[in-house]
């Protein structure tokens, strides 16, 4: 089954062709980072406008690279949320128009579910069930993946996403953008036990996250210092903060595995590229005889191959989206 995936939930316009939900034939991403850098962040209307400019060339490139024509496609999968509504609508409208004109089945995909499905693209031997931790600038949640497309939400952030906490602490330390990558780098030459920041466990056994309080604790700590932190202090704060986040992410991922009696964990989303997180996940997995799967950095960021992969399972099961399919800024996995 050949599926065209379309993704436009935030900064990236992406299209991909995936075979049988496992093999990537093409995977094209047009990033708007350069455009938004000038404005210090994502600008919704600009994002929509650039998605409109990019979407047709990106889809053509994806088909061309896959050496596929429109007539070869068996279905179309498109992200319907969560994300910026104006951005989502661009991908959604194109997908609907193509499905209607070509008479192809269409399916709407949850972006977060796409991240989980992305793990199948690189690991032929990955089998359900497993625990999935999705951690990025916009999401922090844990799922039990019972089968392909059968994701049960076990916990999620009640306030800030982990990646957002990274960005905000970095901004407070005047480290620049993207904060997560800079903190990751500075932490390598620093003492991660220098400062004891709180580990937000919530209650014992809970798989929910809360990073807002940790962010506030770090900011309060810096304000209390009463002087501009030195370079070494900044590195130590970054490392100590990162360690607190990593402790909680690793702790909860394995707690979920323990609660569900599983020994496989998939970690995906932008923050999955954090070196310290990867290191700690692998250490812990070794200790417990568990297996950890982390997609390569490209598949951790937003892309359409993962959307095509997630959509394939639904299409195979006969799920069809109506042509009045809508976009949602917040969309729970059901």
């Amino acid at each position: 089954m050949l599926v065209l995936g379309i993704e436009s939930s935030c900064d990236e316009t992406a299209a991909a062709v995936v075979k049988d939900g496992r093999t990537i034939l093409s995977d094209v991403v047009a990033s708007q980072d350069e455009v938004h850098k000038n404005y210090g962040g994502v600008v919704p209307e600009l994002a929509s406008r650039h998605h409109i400019e990019n979407i047709t060339p990106v889809i053509s490139a994806a088909l061309e690279q896959a050496k596929t024509s429109l007539a070869d496609l068996d279905g179309i999968a498109v992200t319907q949320g969560p994300g910026l509504v104006g951005s989502l609508l661009v991908g959604l409208s194109v997908a609907k128009a193509m499905a209607y004109v070509l008479g192809l089945p269409l399916v709407g995909v949850n972006h977060v579910e796409g991240h989980i499905a992305g793990a199948f693209l690189e690991n032929d031997d990955l089998r359900c069930p497993f625990i999935a931790l999705v951690v990025s600038g916009g999401h922090t949640s844990i799922y039990e993946v019972r089968g392909q497309g059968e994701n049960v939400l076990l916990g999620q952030t009640r306030d800030d996403a982990a990646g957002e906490a990274f960005d905000k602490v970095a901004k407070f330390l005047k480290l620049g953008y993207p904060g997560g990558i800079i903190i990751d780098r500075l932490s390598r030459n620093a003492n991660r036990k220098a400062f004891a920041f709180p580990r937000p466990w919530i209650t014992s056994g809970s798989l929910d996250f809360s990073f807002s309080g940790l962010k506030t604790a770090v900011i309060t700590f810096i304000k209390k210092m009463n002087h501009e932190p030195t370079a070494q202090e900044i590195n130590d704060i970054a490392a100590s903060f990162q360690e607190a986040v990593v402790d909680v992410l690793v702790g909860k991922a394995f707690l979920a595995a323990e609660q569900k009696g599983l020994n496989k964990i998939v970690v995906c989303g932008g923050v999955a590229s954090n070196q310290r997180l990867r290191e700690r996940l692998h250490e812990e997995a070794k200790k417990r005889g568990a297996a950890v799967f982390i997609p390569s950095p490209h598949l951790c960021t937003d892309n359409a191959a993962m959307i095509a992969a997630a959509g394939t399972y639904y299409l195979e099961r006969g799920v069809r989206a109506p042509l009045n399919l809508n976009a949602y800024s917040r969309l729970p996995i059901v």
């Binding site: 919704p44 509504v85 600038g137 306030d159 957002e164 800024s329």
Partner: peptide
């Protein structure tokens, strides 16, 4: 309360 009220920093606007 089915959707927790979370930070909209990433999406800019969250609709409930």
């Amino acid at each position: 309360e089915s959707l927790p009220i979370v930070s909209p920093t990433f999406t800019l606007i969250n609709e409930y």
